[in-house]
Amino acid sequence: MSKDKMVPVPSNAIVPERDINKIPILETHHLGIDFGGLKAVDEFSITVGRTEISGLIGPNGAGKTTVFNLLTNVYQPTRGTILLDGKSTAKKSTAQINKMGIARTFQNIRLFSNMSVIDNVRVGLHNSTNQSLAASLTRLFGYKTSERKSLEEAMELLSFFHMDDMANRQAGSLPYGAQRRLEIARALATRPGIILLDEPAAGMNPSETAELMENIRRIRDNFNIAVMLIEHDMNLVMNICEGICVLDHGKVIAKGSPDEIRSNPKVIEAYLGKKKGGVEGGEE
């Protein structure tokens, strides 16, 4: 079994070389969920290395977001197991799973839009802020220290994304690209072992996308965590992902390195067969 974890069984060398001797941050075995009669996700088995940037791609409606919802238990899996850092996440709530180490962003941005930018990040710091209810109510018992610490840490995260000058703006009033960055900053504030990004480049122009790619690499290098992203922008995926998993109609149709995926006939068929669904950025 332990050998299983050392070698990335379900994938063809998805786990990068450097991660092979550590237990994977995330493993799923035969994960699946049905909505009524629809098998939205089925037999989904992957392994993600500790510091790996991996991609989850597939045509519209393939089940990618559903996979993220399964990983964070927003949806209860009908079948299969999820191991986070070797521990099963079954029967855990979404909040508990976050504490165990999965943070995420959402395809349709979900910020605390009436709160300030910095408070959004501070909400992300919730579980690492050491402040009791008594301290909250009285401003005593270490209130000042904990508030200052959360302010400082939040500012640090904001400056990582070059957003320090927006700290006091209302989150909902930010331009689109900044909202996406803020969502990532908030997720990182929870100190995850793996961060799931659902279409982080959606709606971005090429220069913003380039900055995002740079940011994703920096996140991995600075925080030493794994990044898993859903993306339709093939240029981005092929450029930064070390391992890619392709979903179609809820099933994994291919796994491998960008080169392998690019030349995989099944993948080409899944995309070309559904040209209407379209892959922005294309493979060219």
Partner: peptide, 30 residues
């Protein structure tokens, strides 16, 4: 009580739940 609560960790959690329950859950708030 109310003003202290609002400007605290607890108050931010409460406001976050109001603004977006799913997101609040996703950052580990009970």
């Amino acid at each position: 009580v109310v003003l202290n609560l609002i400007n605290s960790k607890t108050g931010r959690a409460v406001t976050a739940i109001r603004d977006n329950r799913i997101a609040a859950e996703s950052v580990g708030i009970n």
